[in-house]
Simulated assay, not measured.
Amino acid sequence: MTALTYLSLRCVLEYLEANRRLQIAARNRALSRIDKSVPFHISLLRFTDDEITVNNISYTEYAKEDQKIKRLMDGGDILLEDDDIPRKVIHITYSTGNLRFNGRDLPEGVKKGVATRQFACHVLEGRKTIKMTYLRIDNTFEKELRVPENLKLYVQKVRSYGTNMINLVNILDPQCLPLEPFETSVCFPSYYRENQIVANAKILILHGDGFASQIIDWHPTLLKVLNKHVETKDIRLRGAQIREIVQKFMNNPDFKPIGSSYSVQYLYDLSIERLLRKTKNRFNGAFVTLKEIPKCPPTSQVVCVPLNSDKDLIMYRYAGRQVNSRWIKLELRETGSCIPNVEDTTGFRIPWQYLL
Score class of each variant (00 low, 15 high):
residue 9 L to A: 10
residue 12 V to P: 04
residue 18 A to P: 07
residue 22 L to F: 10
residue 28 N to I: 01
residue 28 N to C: 15
residue 28 N to D: 13
residue 34 I to E: 02
residue 39 P to H: 11
residue 41 H to E: 08
residue 56 N to V: 13
residue 56 N to L: 13
residue 63 A to P: 05
residue 67 Q to Y: 12
residue 71 R to T: 08
residue 71 R to D: 11
residue 73 M to E: 13
residue 75 G to H: 13
residue 75 G to N: 11
residue 76 G to E: 06
residue 81 E to Y: 08
residue 83 D to C: 05
residue 86 P to E: 10
residue 86 P to M: 09
residue 90 I to D: 08
residue 90 I to E: 00
residue 93 T to I: 06
residue 99 L to Y: 15
residue 107 P to V: 06
residue 108 E to M: 13
residue 110 V to K: 02
residue 112 K to P: 11
residue 120 A to W: 08
residue 122 H to A: 05
residue 128 K to T: 12
residue 142 E to Q: 11
residue 151 L to K: 02
residue 152 K to T: 09
residue 154 Y to R: 12
residue 156 Q to R: 15
residue 157 K to A: 09
residue 157 K to G: 01
residue 159 R to Q: 15
residue 160 S to M: 11
residue 161 Y to K: 04
residue 161 Y to T: 00
residue 163 T to H: 06
residue 167 N to S: 15
residue 171 I to Y: 14
residue 172 L to K: 06
residue 174 P to T: 03
residue 175 Q to W: 00
residue 178 P to R: 02
residue 183 E to Y: 08
residue 192 Y to T: 05
residue 193 R to N: 01
residue 198 V to N: 02
residue 201 A to I: 13
residue 203 I to Q: 06
residue 204 L to W: 09
residue 206 L to C: 01
residue 220 P to E: 04
residue 237 L to Q: 12
residue 238 R to P: 04
residue 242 I to R: 00
residue 245 I to R: 04
residue 245 I to W: 07
residue 245 I to V: 04
residue 253 P to T: 00
residue 254 D to E: 08
residue 259 G to D: 05
residue 260 S to Y: 07
residue 260 S to I: 02
residue 262 Y to E: 01
residue 263 S to W: 06
residue 264 V to R: 07
residue 275 L to P: 03
residue 276 L to N: 08
residue 295 K to S: 12
residue 306 P to I: 03
residue 306 P to A: 09
residue 307 L to K: 00
residue 310 D to A: 10
residue 312 D to K: 00
residue 314 I to D: 10
residue 315 M to G: 02
residue 318 Y to F: 15
residue 323 V to S: 12
residue 332 L to G: 05
residue 335 T to M: 09
residue 339 I to A: 00
residue 339 I to L: 05
residue 342 V to K: 14
residue 343 E to F: 03
residue 344 D to F: 04
residue 347 G to F: 13
residue 348 F to P: 01
residue 350 I to F: 01
residue 355 L to Y: 00
